[in-house]
Design a protein around this nucleic acid. Structure first.
Lengths: 129, 129
DNA sequence: CGTAGTCGATTACGCGTGTAAACGATAACA
DNA sequence: TGTTATCGTTTACACGCGTAATCGACTACG
């Protein structure tokens, strides 16, 4: 029975998330490659990326595979899942778990493009079928 | 020209947010009253609430008005605004600022109730008019 | 007038996070 | 073979957060 997989995934911080994004986009990557993807944008040094990668490994969000002398890093959790739990968390915290108010907010804040609206409409159609 | 209102509101933490919710629901309140609203649910002591209130005052998210010997606390920022920036932050971070993918996610995760769907549909109608 | 309760303010402390330097092993090159 | 570049690991440190005890002032009751 799957033993006990507490599997309560440790929370990923914002800086760590930036690293995850790099890995989700392309993996496996070496630490240096990750740095190439994110260091400029965030003004980080390679050392910082290394720390973040270690922490992600500790949190079991990333796994390593030896490649000669160095390691290759790959995500262990799917972006889908991360994004899902984070969205859910927000909806729960701010809107009592209801998605409609969130949507209303985005609408009111003009955060919806024409495209968004069209896509959402299409999705609604699917849901109703 | 509105001078420079840095107005870059300091980030409100999750524990602080719980206190804000109490104040948004009813204000002004004394520290003890806030505690009555949240201490049980979060397992906090009055001391904790006081600390959080102080920090919120420091962040200018809450203001105090003397009432005899004690203070009454009221929110200085509107829930609307808080919720708006937090939602936006999430959409930016996880979905590149596009709301449609967020919506798709919620749909896929069955996080949408019938009611949500109906409301969203109604909102869409309004938006299109 | 003293004493107990109540307030806000101050101080505390451990943990996660952001950011990075230092260290030790190893590979590559001269 | 000695030196340099490169890895991953270890250690560091300041700051914000969660959680709270303590302190000094004041009030109200006896």
């Amino acid at each position: 029975m799957a033993a006990e997989s507490p599997e309560q995934p440790e929370r990923i911080s914002e800086a760590e998330h930036a690293v995850m994004e790099a890995l989700w986009q392309r993996a496996p990557l070496t630490a240096s490659e990750v740095c190439q993807q994110v260091c400029d944008a965030r003004g980080w040094s390679l050392a910082t990326v290394k720390t973040l990668l270690s922490r992600l490994v500790a949190k079991q969000a990333v796994e390593t595979a030896p490649d000669g002398k160095r390691f290759l890093y790959s995500p262990r959790i799917a972006r889908q899942d991360y994004v899902g739990t984070e969205s859910r968390r927000l909806v729960d915290r701010l809107f009592g778990g209801r998605a409609a108010p969130l949507f209303a907010h985005l609408a009111e804040a003009d955060a919806l493009t024409e495209e968004d609206i069209a896509e959402i409409e299409a999705l609604l159609q699917e849901l109703k079928s």
